[in-house]
Design a protein around this nucleic acid. Sequence first.
DNA 1: GACTATTGGGTAATCGATCACCCAAGGAGG
DNA 2: CCTCCTTGGGTGATCGATTACCCAATAGTC
Lengths: 335, 335
Amino acid sequence: MRIVAVSLSDIAERAGVSVKTVSGALHGGSARMSDDTRQKVKAIAEELGYVTNLAARGVRQGWLPLVGVVSDGLITSPFATEIVRGLDGAARSAGMAVFAVNHRSGQSIGSVLDEVQQFRPRAVAYAAMYHKDVALPDRLAGAVGVMINCREAAGRVTALVPDEEGGAREIVRYLLVAGRRRIAFINLPGILAGMLREMGFRAALEEAGIDHVGVFPAVRRSVYSDRAPSLVASHVEALLKSGQRPDAILCGNDRVAMEVYAALARAGLRIPDDIAVASFDNQVEIASRLDPPLTTMALPHRAMGRLAMEILLAEQPEPPRLRKLPFHLVERASV
Amino acid sequence: MRIVAVSLSDIAERAGVSVKTVSGALHGGSARMSDDTRQKVKAIAEELGYVTNLAARGVRQGWLPLVGVVSDGLITSPFATEIVRGLDGAARSAGMAVFAVNHRSGQSIGSVLDEVQQFRPRAVAYAAMYHKDVALPDRLAGAVGVMINCREAAGRVTALVPDEEGGAREIVRYLLVAGRRRIAFINLPGILAGMLREMGFRAALEEAGIDHVGVFPAVRRSVYSDRAPSLVASHVEALLKSGQRPDAILCGNDRVAMEVYAALARAGLRIPDDIAVASFDNQVEIASRLDPPLTTMALPHRAMGRLAMEILLAEQPEPPRLRKLPFHLVERASV
DNA sequence: GACTATTGGGTAATCGATCACCCAAGGAGG
DNA sequence: CCTCCTTGGGTGATCGATTACCCAATAGTC
């Protein structure tokens, strides 16, 4: 089960050359050497099944070709998908690997970051599952190169976040262009994303000179959570009974939309004919599987991942700033 | 942004002792040394912000405290959640970190495994997104310690897979105990999990001396995929119109169940009063958010992860074998 | 009081890869 | 024929942590 590791000196011995020549032949593209020697060394390396020992190289260089990603449980969440894809793609083209470490509840940020630092990564990012503020201890603010999906409380680190407000404006405008005028919003209460989306929602309607038909919290608790008892069904029923029955319902996320679908089906209403439904997140397994498929603003997760890696690996560090990345509209059949 | 790394010799110099003493004080619990010296060294290490350099230790030991997990895209799938949690929990208690590497389509298994081997991990696992067979090249069969959610084609590596057939038997028995007698199965066609679940489904009914009301494929393509056009709605409609209207529908997974819910709602039928619905996977965001919440057989993902790590880190390697892990029933309100 | 354990801690080698520097052979130019 | 430069490749130091081995001082024993 354990494979005996082949080292450069094994190859050197077999080839009758020095270790440095082997190193040059395999890794140093510019090392002066006859083609003959280079080919011979490569052949022997191949034959012996040589695999570079990055730990050894790492001691010399002072770092391993790793980019650490510390996340508050994100790596085990479906939302991580695209962030990791974005990071990983960009990392590989730079010869780096992504090393994800979970920041488990109860553990201090400092201790997770130290855990990561033990591996001497080239750079470290912090990613959050939900768009929020994260306080980094002074000692560590310098160790983190970029914040993904969250903002460093003191603004000392460049942060990449979705442009919640802009995304909300865009989806509202889209509903307006589709001819909808009585729009309700069942929102995620108490979290940053929800608050910003609501600002965008209100601004876009105001800009159009229209009143909304209601803004409601999806759950009873002040912070959105999947476990909290849902208020969605009762809000929808109340809306339908009210004098101002909406012709569009905007949902805080796709799971809320799923519940809205169920409530509308019970009421015998058709989507989008009677009421349009739109949402945020684009959680594909849900959005594409609903009937009709859900029109939703996709979070810029992959773009955040890609951009994060570019920033981390950049030669010239930029001054820290907040970068808002645009959502993009995924048009399906629910509007 | 880059933190200047503190080494043992920095501490040694500051403390006026040798490097070996520092090493012993910080890492070698059993090294002979006065408590005085040990405390002094620890204090200085703390003060300077020392973080162990695992790369350096790794050169000496021949391996890094990493467990590589190669997966066919699993790490970016919601199903990875629990596997990684299981792996990670067990790894941490052993002082190891999980290093996940994506096996991207188009890349050979050999090249991904080599990528991982560069980091000299203590052990390597291969994990699959869907329960299936994976062919490992001869050269590499010895490098992988355990297969998770898949079987090595030639059986040379211990494999941990869900007990699909047993899980299907259990959920069918549960439906029978609940008094259901006319059970239909809308299954995932063409994949191993689906075939095994169907065997269990048929066996449990046969054991009870009952006929099923129909077994249908969820999609038109021979291999289940989210993109394939869904047949669920039409199957449900056909079932309801048939003389043998079912009193329970078993679904290949929670997404299929989601579509069954929608079709039943359109038909004005109540769950579970008119028809019970049960399923496989326990994809929590869906199963717990449906109305009524979905009764489903949870995949033993976390258990597979935990057991995998135990096997990987075991002193004595076991002979390779196939281990089927039991599903567990998550009772909610749909039966 | 001399002799042996025991304790506290230093020295130097080692892991594998890299790199600055040196050396030898051979060709070009004067 | 001598010097200079280029090419091909070796020597030895280095990165940081660990470890086998050694040495000095102290404590304990007869």
